[in-house]
Design a protein around this nucleic acid. Sequence first.
DNA 1: GCCGTTTTCGGCCCGACTGTTTTCAGTCG
Length: 581
Amino acid sequence: MARSNDEVAALFAEYADLISITGGDAFRTRTYEKAARSIGGYHADVSTLDVKGLQEIPNVGKSIAEKIVEYFRTGQVSAVEELRAKIPAGVRRLTAIPTLGPKKAMAIYEELGISSIEELADAIHEERLRDLKGFGPKTEENILHGIALLQSSGDRVLIDAAMDVAEDVLAQLSKVTGCRRCAYAGSLRRGRETIGDIDILAAAEDSEPLMRAFTELPATSEVIAHGTTKTSIRTTKGLAVDLRVVPPDSWGAALQYFTGSKAHNIRTRERAVHQGLKLSEYGLFDVESGEKIVSETEEDVYARLGLPWIPPTLREDRGEIEAGLRDELPELVQESDIRGDLHTHTDLTDGLAPLEEMVAAAAERGYAYYAITDHAPNLYMQRMTDERMLAQRMRVRELDEEYGRRGKRGGMRLLHGVELNIDPDGGVDWPDDFLADFDICVASVHSHFNQGHDAMTQRFVRACENPYINIIGHPTTRIIGKRPGVDADLDALFAACARTGTALEINSHPDRLDLNDEHILRAKRYGVKFAIDSDAHSTLHLAHLRYGVGTAQRGWLTKDDVINTWPLTRLRRFLRKGRAG
DNA sequence: GCCGTTTTCGGCCCGACTGTTTTCAGTCG
C-alpha cells in the first residue's frame, strides 16, 4: 500500500487549492496538482526516497522534492502551513461544491465571511449572495443544487477509502494475541459503492486485548464508545469504525448478521422463524429448547436454513433468497476470472506512466491480454494527433512481440485501442477507415452532459451503431457525490447494445463505478455483454478492478456475461462486431 | 514550480459553456 504517497498527494492537492484560492500563480497551482497526481500514482514509496530519488518522479523538481523530505522529517511543510493559517479549512471545502471554484469561494469568504457549507446555504436563502459582483440568482440556484448533490452522499466515503482503512485495521488486529479470526463486514463486504461506517468483526475468547489494540491504532483519533462486545472509534480522517468481538463459535452467525443488508437479514430471520428457529448475531437457536444449533461458519447458518451460502454482494433482498431456494444462484464472476483490462491510459495523454510501465504492470497481474486505449483528438486538452497514435501503435506491436513470447501460457498479448469521444450527434473523432485499424475502440461521453433526454439517447444509439465501437465507456458519466448521470433512455441504450454487439463498460474507478449495480441488473435482461475495466491512469489503478468486479457481482453477472473473462479468440470475434473479415 | 532546450528563460492542455455582463470571468472536462 503506497499510503505515504497518498498522504503527500493529498497535501499537495490541498496546497494547489490554497494557492488557487489566494489568487496565486495559476501555473504554480497546476504544477502542484500535477505533482500530486504523479506522486499518488508513483510505484515507489516516497517516504523511502531522498531529494535526488524524488526528482525522478515526473513533475517533481527540487523545490517539491525538498518539501516532501521536510514533510517526512517534521510532519509538516512550512509553506503549506503558512497558507493554511490564512484561509480557514472550510473555504477550501466550499470548492468541493460543483460550479463553485476557488475564485467564487474566496469572494464569498472575503465579502461575507462565510467559511462553511452551512453558512453558505443560509446566506443563499437570505438572498445575500446575489449582491456580490459576479453572482446572480442563477448562481445561487446552481450552488444550492451543488450542495444538495454533495450532501446526497452524506458522510459516506468511497469504497476504496473505506477498504484502505479496513485492511489496515485488519492487519493490525490480526497480530493481536488471541485473535482467532478477523474480517470486515457490513456494506464494505457487500461491495456497495459508498460506505457509511466500517464494521470489523473479530473472534476471540477474550475481547479485551483486541478492544485495547483497536483504541490504540495509529489511525484512531477519538474513541466514541469502549465496551467488551463493541468499541467504536473515529479515524483521523473522520471515518467511524466499529469493532465487535464475538466468541469463536458465534463467528458464522455474527458475520452473517453484521454483513447485512438489513433487508436480507429480515428475510433470513423470517425463514428461521418458520422453522421454529431464532437467528441472531450469537447463533442459530432452537426456540423451544433455546439450544444453539449452529453458528461457527456462515455456510452452516445458511445450510440449516435450507439455503446455499449466499455471496455477500448478493445480499440485498433482490431475489437471492428465492434463487437460493431454487438452487439457481448465479456463479458470480470473480476477479481471478478476468483475463485482461480493456480500457487503460498512458502518459501519451493524461495517464501518469509510460506505455512500457503500464504494460509491465499488467503482465505482473498475470493478464493474458491488455488493451491500451488513450484519448482521441477531440478531447482537445489531450493533444492527440493521428501521428502520435500511429507511433504508439508501432511501439505496442513491438511490445506485443516481446510479451507474447513470454511465460508458459503464451504470454500476454497487447491490443492497440483508443477511447473515442462521442460527440453530441453520436459521431466520433475519426472516420471508419482510420478506426478500422484499431484492435478495439472504447467510446465515451466527455462533454455536453446536459443534452436533452432524447438527443442524449440518440447520441448513444448512434454510437452503438458505429461498426467500430466495441465498448461504451463509463456510460452514465456520473461522478459519485459530484455529478449525476446523464439524462438518457438507458433501456434504449441497453437494447441498442444488445442488438449491435456493443459491450457496456463497468468502469472500476471508485469515483465512478459506472454502470452501477442496478443498471447492470437491468441491462443484463437485454442480453448485453459487459467489460469490467480499470480505466487506469497509473499502474496502481489497475488494482481498482476489484471494485468493478464487486459491482458486477452486485449486478448478478457471471463469467459469461463479461467479455474480458473470455479467451482471446472469442474476444476478438466479439470485437469484429459482425463486420466482414 | 517544472520542463526542455532555442541551455537559462519562456511556455505551461484547449475549447466550450454559463451566467454574468455589456465584453468577460469563472468553471469544467
